[in-house]
């Protein structure tokens, strides 16, 4: 069980192996990795439009929110372990931004918890993306689809 907010990149294979090492009650490990895109698909942009991405965050609150989100996932699903790594600072297209990984005895819990963590992270973790494009800097706007994706978990609980 861990939450890490860091500037450095992470070794995906090593992180996943370490998460399940020594626990043979784990039958499924589900992971999601978010990557830096080089274009805004909805704006119909050409590949290569975005040169870099800078993630700003709220030190202190970020860690608290991620820990709370993880704790919530653990109350909803029987997880053997889970890991959230979220990077901040400047990144180039293709780089890894975020890792969410959930391990459980069975795949359903691992899949669902992973999706839940990403949906909540997208709408609650205090990060902001600044894209460095050919036409200057722009702050990424929040998506209604992300709010809707997160809301389904609330509806389910009610």
């Amino acid at each position: 069980m861990a939450v890490r907010v860091q500037e450095a990149d992470f070794d995906l294979g090593a992180e996943l192996r370490a998460l399940v090492a020594g626990n043979h009650a784990i039958g499924g490990l589900c992971s999601f990795v978010g990557l830096v895109r080089d274009l805004h698909p909805k704006a119909g942009e050409a590949a290569g439009t975005v040169k870099a991405l800078t993630l700003q965050h709220y030190p202190g609150m970020t860690e608290k929110q991620l820990a709370a989100i993880e704790a919530e996932a653990r109350t909803r699903w029987p997880l053997a372990d889970c890991l959230i790594i979220h990077r901040h600072g400047k990144m180039e297209p293709g780089e890894q931004i975020v890792l969410v990984a959930c391990a459980s005895a069975h795949r359903e819990a691992a899949f669902e918890a992973c999706q839940f963590l990403m949906d909540w992270l997208k709408t609650k973790a205090p990060f902001w993306k600044l894209e460095d494009t050919e036409n200057g800097d722009r702050w990424v706007e929040s998506r209604t689809a992300d709010a809707q994706a997160a809301a389904r978990w609330t509806d389910q609980k009610a």
Partner: peptide, 29 residues
């Protein structure tokens, strides 16, 4: 808005010693 690092509505009280953060909707992940 966050008051003392927790999301808060505009009706949330503010008192001396508080940390109040103002920001746009988040876009992490």
């Amino acid at each position: 808005v966050a008051v003392n690092q927790e999301y808060a509505p505009f009706s949330h009280p503010v008192k001396p010693g508080d940390e109040v953060a103002l920001f746009p909707p988040v876009t992490g992940g």
